[in-house]
């Protein structure tokens, strides 16, 4: 069974996003470390969309879907904002001096590092981001074999 959330383009929706993700992770017995990494990556994705995807100050819907299958958690995030492929975003310079550091560049770097696979597609005027994380399901951890 999957998770489907329709969220508004407002940072306040992160509370709802986190709560749903938390119960979803619990349901599938995802370990706390992996759940943290998924939680963080999804916040970074969502807050980037809310902050940068729209310039019309109108309400938009952001669709978040998640499922677990064959040891992978797959999250799909869809928005109708400006075209943005995070895979083309340059990595931050992590050794630059303090005065040149910018936290704004770290979100996408965190997503790309914490997730095992990140895919992007622009289709029918929408950004579709796929995040995948290898997980160990509880049934495997406590299996008979």
């Amino acid at each position: 069974m999957g998770l489907e959330l329709k969220l508004r383009n407002s940072l306040a929706e992160i509370v709802k996003l986190r709560a749903s993700l938390e119960s979803f992770s619990k349901e599938f017995g995802i370990d706390p470390k992996t759940a943290f990494q998924i939680d963080l990556s999804l916040e970074e994705v969502f807050s980037n969309i809310v902050r940068h995807a729209f310039s019309d100050h109108k309400p938009h819907e952001i669709l978040v879907q998640a499922e677990v299958a064959e040891g992978w958690m797959t999250i799909r995030v869809e928005d109708d904002g400006q075209e943005f492929n995070p895979l083309l975003f340059p990595a931050p310079k992590l050794n630059s001096p303090l005065e040149q550091r910018q936290a704004g560049r770290l979100g996408i770097h965190l997503i790309r590092t914490l997730m095992d696979r990140v895919g992007y597609e622009r289709a029918r005027g929408k950004n579709i981001l796929l995040l995948q994380k290898k997980i160990i399901e509880e049934s495997e951890q406590h299996g008979d074999c």
């Binding site: 706390p32 470390k33 943290f36 990494q37 963080l40 916040e43 970074e44 807050s47 303090l98 005065e99 550091r101 910018q102 936290a103 704004g104 770290l106 979100g107 965190l110």
Partner: peptide
């Protein structure tokens, strides 16, 4: 998340201008 890191970075930049310091303690693994 990166938003929180931004707050700490901002603090550090201000402290650097007045020869201040910022240390961290008690970080969990995640």
């Amino acid at each position: 998340s990166s938003a929180g890191l931004g707050a700490l970075l901002h603090l550090l930049k201000i402290l650097q201008k007045k020869a201040g310091r910022c240390l961290l303690s008690g970080l969990g693994a995640s």
